[in-house]
Simulated scan of single mutants.
Amino acid sequence: MLADGTPLLGRRTGIGRYTASLADALASLVDVRLVGFTARGWRGLRSAVPAGTRAVGPPLPARLLRACWARGSFPPVELLAGRADVVHGTNFVLPPPLRARGVVTVHDLAFLDDPRLADPDLPALARRSAQRAAVVCTPTAAVADAVSARWDVPRDGVVVTPLGVDRAWFDAAPPDPALRVHFGLPPEYLLFVGADGPRKGLDTLLRALAPDLPPLVIAGPGASRPADVARTGYLPDPVLRRVVAGASALVLPSRDEGFGLPALEALACGIPVVCSDIPALREVTAGHAALFPRDDVDALRDALREALSRPRDGADARRAHAARFTWRACAEATLEAYRRAVG
Rank of each mutant, 00 (worst) to 15 (best):
R33G: 10
D171G: 09
R340S: 08
R242L: 13
V147L: 08
A48M: 14
L163S: 12
A307D: 02
L281F: 01
A317S: 06
P253S: 01
A124N: 05
P187W: 13
V229Q: 11
S254F: 04
G16P: 03
L191A: 04
V136Q: 06
C269S: 09
D114H: 07
R66C: 12
R99L: 15
R99W: 08
A25W: 00
T38E: 12
G184R: 14
D203I: 11
E283D: 05
R282K: 03
D302S: 07
H88Q: 05
R11S: 10
D296N: 11
L29R: 08
E336C: 10
V159T: 07
G197H: 05
R167H: 12
F259H: 05
C137I: 01
W169C: 01
L300C: 12
A303W: 02
D302I: 03
P76Y: 04
P211H: 05
F111T: 10
G233Y: 13
L179Y: 03
R43Q: 04
A249L: 14
L205M: 13
P198L: 07
V77H: 02
R294F: 12
A100S: 15
T204G: 11
V244W: 11
T285N: 06
P175R: 06
L191F: 05
G82H: 11
P293R: 09
V217H: 04
S148C: 13
L252F: 10
L94V: 07
E257P: 04
V135H: 02
R132I: 09
R63T: 11
A67L: 10
A307C: 13
D196H: 13
G314T: 07
V135T: 12
F259V: 14
G5S: 14
P186Y: 09
G258K: 05
L335H: 15
L45S: 01
A100Y: 02
L213C: 11
A168P: 15
P7H: 10
S129L: 02
A320G: 13
F92S: 01
A331F: 01
D31C: 12
L109V: 06
L98R: 15
G89P: 00
P238I: 11
V243R: 00
A133D: 00
V135I: 12
A141E: 08
A149Q: 15
P215D: 05
V193Q: 04
A230M: 14
H182G: 15
A149P: 08
G36L: 05
V143H: 02
V165Q: 03
P174Y: 12
A110Y: 07
L34D: 01
P198S: 07
L80M: 08
Y18T: 12
S224V: 11
I218L: 15
G16N: 00
I278G: 03
L26Y: 03
G36W: 03
A329T: 05
V159K: 10
C330T: 03
A341N: 08
